[in-house]
């Protein structure tokens, strides 16, 4: 067991974990932050996407020990209690989700995308979420949701 200290959604969390514990399992099983999902075992689907020190990362590709000392934001910590992040709002407004399984990871990737490029074109959006798989939506409403977020996040976010 290895001691780690990770700031998750603004709160310092200390724990002892097996070195092989994946960050996604640390979040889900130790911290009960089950909004971050697991959709594959080959790092292709992006359902597990979180922000590590402000950059999007697939939390199934990191060991928890690798995130020691980092700041991690999960979908649960994206907006203050009772509020929605503009990307979350966009997904709601534009029907950017169906079953919702890919959604947290998709939202985190979109947040990262808009950080880098606040006014992306449609093809830049499609490129930006190409690391996230969705089987339900055909992506069109997700693209629209991110466009919605881009239009409305001028003042908020970033």
């Amino acid at each position: 067991m290895v001691p780690i200290a990770i700031t998750v959604n603004g709160k310092l969390r200390k724990a002892h974990v097996e070195p092989r514990t994946l960050l996604v399992h640390f979040l889900r099983e130790h911290l009960n932050l089950t909004g971050t999902h697991v959709g594959c075992d080959t790092s292709q689907c992006g359902a597990c996407t979180v922000l590590v020190d402000g950059r999007s990362a697939k939390s199934c590709t990191l060991f928890a020990v690798q995130a020691d000392g980092s700041e991690v934001t999960t979908v649960e910590g994206l907006a203050p209690e009772g509020q929605l992040h503009p990307v979350q709002q966009g997904f709601w407004e534009e029907h950017g989700l169906q079953c919702g399984y890919c959604t947290p990871g998709m939202i985190m990737s979109a947040v990262n995308l808009l950080k880098d490029n606040p006014a992306p074109s449609e093809s830049q959006i499609r490129e930006g979420i190409a690391g996230n798989l969705c089987r339900c939506t055909g992506y069109q409403h997700i693209v629209t949701a991110i466009q919605h977020a881009a239009r409305h996040s001028g003042k908020a976010a970033r």
Partner: peptide, 14 residues
């Protein structure tokens, strides 16, 4: 959507 976009949906693995 409000529960799902905040990561508050409960799937079996949760």
């Amino acid at each position: 959507d409000p529960r799902l976009i905040r990561g508050l949906g409960t799937y079996v693995d949760d």
